[in-house]
Design a protein around this nucleic acid. Sequence first.
DNA 1: GTAATAATGGACCATTCGGTCCTTTATGTG
DNA 2: CACATAAAGGACCGAATGGTCCATTATTAC
Lengths: 185, 185
Amino acid sequence: MGRRKLFTREDVLDKAIPVFWKHGLAETSVQDLEQATGVRKSGLYTEFKDKEDLFVESLRRYFDVLMAGGYLTKQPLGWTNVESFLKVCYGSWGQKGCFSVNSMREFADLPPKARQIMVGSVMKHHQLLIDNLAAARGARDDNDSLAGLVITFFSGISLEQNLGPDRARITKKIDAFMQLIRGKG
Amino acid sequence: MGRRKLFTREDVLDKAIPVFWKHGLAETSVQDLEQATGVRKSGLYTEFKDKEDLFVESLRRYFDVLMAGGYLTKQPLGWTNVESFLKVCYGSWGQKGCFSVNSMREFADLPPKARQIMVGSVMKHHQLLIDNLAAARGARDDNDSLAGLVITFFSGISLEQNLGPDRARITKKIDAFMQLIRGKG
DNA sequence: GTAATAATGGACCATTCGGTCCTTTATGTG
DNA sequence: CACATAAAGGACCGAATGGTCCATTATTAC
């Protein structure tokens, strides 16, 4: 046996996520990642193939941890879950908005694996939203369409977080949207 | 008198806009701009202070040209204008979505002047939307709130354009949203 | 303690970056 | 034609980039 690692893979990812989240793949330098993770370049390149690989794994872990929260799978399904989903835009890992939504901007330049994760995640959320809407409103034809609107609205508020509005404003916005789709406006 | 310029300022901007739009400020190299505009570096740096300046001016021209379309000022004000606004997300300059929405992702890293233009534009659109909603629904207290939702939805669909959905899908989404806010759902 | 092992630290590399500057070339005036 | 003027072409710069590689150091098993 030799010397043992001073870091775990998850440690590195959790520290890399906020950096990629804030600055994106292209605008994040390896030096930035060294500083954020406290792991030297050689260490990073031992654990990950290259910068893109580190980005992809960060994105994967982001969804893994986030989905583990189960905001759209809590029983009973319904409006409460939909609202919980929207509130994911408050952020995590010390960042505002959504890592994936922020990455959409450079979608075309992202590695295929990253694109795959993102698209897959959207589809998964879409289906989960349909299930929750069905529980809340019954099996209606327009559940699919409405789920699409919810996703779009989520993208919007998540992106707007980059402009740095206070939480009260965004909460009111979510409330207004929930009222709208619940038909109590 | 000496040799005359082979390009106009507007020419350069119109050719730079799609590049910045697609790749953002950071991921666009001066070389990319040379190729896209057909103007050599020296020419670009004679006309513009630096890359950031060219970006800011591109953004400014984008809004100038776009707003000149008058999609939110056409008389009579009302729902039609709101829908016209949402359809701006179809794109222009050969690009999909919205240049400004795409730039929101790197908002924090943008030059102050660019941020100023973007924020100012959002406020302007917000007010124009309020005016149109007032014309469409009467002077209601929640016009302000609803205008906010429209802007957020616009951000969402514009961003989603980066995933490359077909126009039919996005049109249906806009229709569904319009139905929702017009209260005919 | 000693040898084996594996991660760390950091020198190093080619390339690309944004940006400057000088020479060349084209266009205008008389 | 000759001169003046201004833009175009492109060499050039230091800095930063992503990535490689090796010597050093720390930790294990014996």
